[in-house]
Design a binder for these strands. Structure first.
Lengths: 127, 127
DNA sequence: TTAATATATTGCAAAATGCAAGTAACTATA
DNA sequence: TATAGTTACTTGCATTTTGCAATATATTAA
């Protein structure tokens, strides 16, 4: 694996030293920010994430959850053992994507009339 | 081609009626927003766009310019005939992506120390 | 005549995506 | 006890997108 991001100097970045480029290397695709959106709305579990109206494929969801955890944007916590079941949470790095989502949502609402945000999900009771 | 976006009602959107989803359908990939960035920085021509440090392939650049024009985010104007040569410009819809770029750049700078913005390109003299 | 410039297109291999089905470890129901 | 359901994935495979290199076209410059 190319782990250049941990190095110093001019070879420290995958594509370039541009902050936009490095952001796109994390969430520059059609699915990742939708998962972040769902977590912001209060979704926590795999079935909740997979049941969003965009119909993400389960292999893509599993892949993105893995990559987001590796990037430090989300964490997962087991809420039961046997079988192990996990809930996913945004880290501070993930929460700080709020302004990015807000700007994109604002642009979408302005240029695609009829679009509308989904309501937040009710939070489950403590287990 | 699926041209649902011109229809009305509940089938009006490709993936969902979420404004974020519709924004991602336009620029949710690793290259499109880098082209927008370059246009914001003052680049206008194919060779200027292709010479950015991320090294976009020429077929990808041609594809994205076509899609962005179809989406109303950029326009092109011939600056000479024989052979036809074009300059690319952001439309208002494209200019209004400024806050999206700003939020992503801010996030990148915060979480990837060492990244830095490129300087704006000097504008060429009027032909 | 040859080379250089600008804006692409083409061909092909590699990687990512989309879709359906399968798996594992339980839990609930008949 | 047997069957079905739930949750969180994994696997296989076809389609699509991307990455890379080479080629094309029209023109000007040397």
């Amino acid at each position: 694996m190319n782990d250049d991001k941990t190095m110093e100097g001019e070879f420290a970045f995958e594509r370039s030293c541009c902050p936009l480029t490095n952001a796109l290397d994390i969430f520059g695709d059609k699915w990742t920010l939708l998962i972040i959106r769902d977590l912001v709305l209060g979704k926590r579990r795999y079935l909740e994430l997979i049941s969003s109206p965009e119909k993400i494929a389960s292999n893509i969801l599993a892949d993105r959850l893995k990559k987001l955890e590796a990037a430090g944007v989300i964490t997962r916590q087991a809420y039961q053992q046997k079988p192990a079941r996990y809930e996913y949470f945004l880290t501070e790095k993930g929460e700080s994507l709020g302004p990015v989502l807000a700007a994109m949502i604002s642009w979408g609402q302005e240029h695609y009339p009829g679009t509308q945000l989904f309501p937040a999900v009710r939070q489950r009771q403590a287990t």
